[in-house]
Design a protein around this nucleic acid. Structure first.
Lengths: 247, 247
DNA sequence: TAGATTGTTAATCGATTAACAATC
DNA sequence: TAGATTGTTAATCGATTAACAATC
């Protein structure tokens, strides 16, 4: 193999920080919008504003991919779209399987945002025979029994779990056994998976709880409604009297 | 006001790191499960395992709330549930409005995970008269025209945006104007809001893109499909020939 | 008392940011 | 050339982690 193969800029390859990877899709989205508007070039200042970050961070992030800008000019929109897409692995199509066709699975099956970004919903799966066979978004829902076959034949490497929480771990185990190495988990459970399998989670109620925390600070009140549980008494402390909580 | 009011442990109050706040809901979920099983106490090691973090991080996180454990014993499950709930502001009920009743809004309206965690879906709203009036999860969908009234009367402080992307900013503006100060945004857009308004976003396709990035590294291939856009020529460089990309 | 486990310290690591030399 | 803007450096900030004294 020629030496050129390994002569990547030092920062490329494995070395892209996770925080940067997580922002690349934001840049890509902003760039796609510019591309559709026919904008040929964009400065780090403009692109950063469109993506909702500051320009120093944007430039640092892009520098991990290489030197794709032009000083005094900015970045070529199309070229940068391509470079980021390639870095994220979106120049190929990723077949995705959705497991658990309840309300959320149903919504995701119909979600247009996947197809437009290099993902293809290859299969909808459910364990309930009352659901299998139904047609959703033009696809028949298949039974979980077909999982292994589908993964094999359609080269599915990403699974999306939208089952109820109690079923999620078992589904994850089956996905892993079938050869899937990336899981997007919507069930509110911690999944345990072997090394080498990536799990990302989306938890709707966790996001709300984080908002509630900040909302509480804003309103200034420290509201305590309902009974306050007794602090468990420790040996050496005076008894079982519920102590007054700091208001 | 008595001085005791301000004698909080130094680390309490404003000082809780964001990363810690984001993990408190995880601990709460794990603790709730333990509570339901009737487990009276738990060690940092056990709780950390249940929440999917390491125990040093868990102890550090909990130490920001106060000293609620007992050395040699662990944490009282019920007591810690209460303390975390209080810190997150979940001892009160948060009325939530969902705006945009498409597939996703529909799914969220039916999502049980909200009610069980101190949130109450107070209203479903849509701008489309073909949708308003429909009953979903036992509630009638109201028209956007009623937004201001609903926010006022039901004391809604959290809005969930599940509209298509092009409508999201306008909806956010109206929510803010109506007095809402926390927004959970599912639309794939960067929202601009005034200081003091919190926005959190959930973007399904971004999560998939992050998975795709890592998936690509695993498979080892650096697949380039389709045409490679020409690198924009810079003055001083040789012409417009598309350069060969690093494979 | 001996064993267990917390709460905290301090070291390390990674991410953010401002500033500016390089260069178009 | 002068103005604009990148790419990079270095300082700062925040988060993670191991280790262990405190203490139940």
């Amino acid at each position: 193999m020629a030496t050129g193969r390994t002569e990547r800029p030092a920062q490329r390859g494995r070395g892209i920080p996770e925080a940067t990877v997580a922002r690349l899709p934001l840049y890509l989205r902003a760039l796609s919008a510019l591309s559709e508007r026919g904008v040929p070039t964009v400065s780090s200042e403009e692109l950063a504003a469109a993506a909702g970050v500051n320009s120093a961070k944007l430039r640092k992030d892009l520098s991990y991919l290489g030197s794709y800008g032009t000083r005094g000019v900015g970045y070529d929109v199309e070229y940068l779209v391509y470079q980021i897409s390639r870095e994220l692995g979106l120049t190929q199509d990723w077949p995705v399987a959705i497991i658990g066709i309840g309300n959320l699975g149903h919504a995701l099956a119909n979600y247009g945002g996947f197809a437009s970004r290099g993902f293809r919903v290859a299969a909808l799966l459910d364990a309930d025979r009352a659901v299998t066979g139904q047609r959703i978004a033009g696809m028949a829902v298949r039974h979980m029994d077909d999982l292994e076959q589908i993964v094999r034949e359609d080269h599915v490497s990403i699974g999306v779990i939208t089952t109820p929480a109690p079923a999620a771990q078992e589904v994850a185990d089956r996905l892993v056994a079938a050869g899937i190495t990336s899981i997007l988990n919507f069930a509110p459970t911690v999944l345990s998976v072997p090394e080498g399998v990536d799990v990302r989670k989306v938890d709707l109620s966790i996001e709300l709880q984080i908002l509630a925390f900040h909302e509480q600070r804003k309103s200034g009140l420290d509201p305590v409604a309902g009974p306050v549980p007794a602090r468990p008494s420790k040996p050496g402390e005076r008894g079982d009297l519920p102590e007054v909580m700091p208001a």
